[in-house]
Nucleic acid binder design. Structure first.
Lengths: 241, 241
DNA sequence: ACCTGAACACCGTTCAAGT
DNA sequence: ACCTGAACACCGTTCAAGT
């Protein structure tokens, strides 16, 4: 029997199929490998066919971010704002962790799509339902910044590259530590203090999830304190001078 | 008299001249316009000549980040850690604001150059000199995240594009607000509450510097509190369960 | 040994020629 | 009217041929 043509050939292209394929391609080959031409190839389609469903590459990336936002759990209608916000941020983080490229994509977007605006609107709603003033909510959103999307700037690269310090000869590793301790004594101290299970050097073994929650809770506790004392930006600006 | 050849022709190329030209080009034409070929043209040099001074484009970007880091004021040797950190972060912010592309460049770098490591080492030193435990310092650095470099994720795009809401007809603006108030009522509330001098809509009129300092101080106050109660990550993890 | 033009293997997107 | 091949105007980087 003859081989069936790939499904991509049979079912007609549509926006969702384009976006889904783009997400898979970015997941598997990395965002730097995502090109209109490569994507078309993956869809078994001529490059220009994609332009029927997204205006250009920018719109493709917007759509991909929308897909990720769609994977974030819904906002809880919960009077306990702290729990609601915390839960949703950690849900966003889970979605982000499934798609390593998403962080960079979100950072690079300048405009905001409808899906993103909806997410933010819901997010703001959690503070307001929790009794926050519009004023404090505004500044809290700014303070959360990218943590609203479940990510933080990493201190050190923990991407591919040094997944295994095992294949570096121990004497070379020792020399590196020696060198680091002279050049960057403070970094070394901090790196050594961070628990590590594998005896590796910098940027390893520190628990990203713990770091994320540490910073998140620090901010949430701060918001709670300000909320409790009826903080207003006007008063804060007066106090500052 | 004959025109002198451009200085670029006469003084031989070196790494610093290449980096300086790249910074100027990115400042003036935007980071998206910075290509090896365009940079070569700006230096009145054949494209391949640049490769004598930087291995590839990645290294060029690394070097450009180093230039910006070099513009940040030195760390203060100040027992008042809070003042020292605050001052330096705001100095970093000034440097960043002079080079709009720098934020994206820093975010995109995975490895860390010597200049960046030095900056971080100095930065850590401010906490240690201030009496912080290595443990708390570690987590504080993570919590600061990109704020260490003087930037935060913007909530809304305030780049070029809507510098003047003036040229949008008022009836169109009114219709947009009407539409927003139905779709994204919470965003609209927050946007309206943010003071604005110019009667514009979303993302305008909110004082970025105030927002930055608000979040920074919230974190610094949090660090101070934890420091005062001899916080340790071990205890925090035990408490969390 | 050093320098560099041409070439290679790509891009995103336009456009006119085909059905 | 729709689709698409070829073309355009770029990329970063390799490499061999020139000095």
């Amino acid at each position: 029997m003859t081989q069936q043509p790939v499904t991509a050939r049979r079912t007609p292209l549509n926006r969702d199929r384009v976006l889904a394929a783009a997400v898979v391609l970015a997941d598997e080959a990395g965002i730097e490998s995502l090109s209109m031409r490569r994507l078309a190839q993956e869809l078994a389609v001529v490059p220009m066919a994609i332009y029927k469903h997204v205006a250009n590459k920018e719109e493709l990336l917007d759509g991909m971010v929308d897909v990720i936002v769609g994977e974030i759990g819904p906002a809880l209608h919960n009077p306990d704002w702290k729990d609601a916000v915390r839960t949703r941020v950690l849900s966003a983080r889970q979605a982000l962790l499934r798609h390593p490229w998403a962080r960079q994509a979100i950072e690079s977007r300048t405009g905001r799509t409808a899906a993103v605006l909806e997410y933010m609107d819901d997010f703001i709603g959690m503070f307001l339902v929790g009794g926050f003033s519009v004023d404090l909510t505004h500044h809290a959103m700014h303070a959360l910044g990218s943590r609203m999307w479940g990510f933080t700037q990493e201190l050190f690269d923990n991407e591919a590259g040094h997944k295994s310090t095992a294949d570096v000869p121990p004497e070379v590793q020792a020399a590196m530590v020696q060198d680091m301790s002279q050049r960057y004594p403070n970094i070394l101290q901090v790196a050594m203090a961070a628990r590590h299970d594998d005896g590796s050097v910098v940027g390893q073994g520190c628990d990203d999830q713990f770091e994320f929650e540490f910073a998140l809770d620090l901010l949430l506790d701060g918001f709670e304190r300000l909320h409790g004392q009826d903080w207003t930006s006007e008063r804060a600006m007066r106090d500052r001078g």
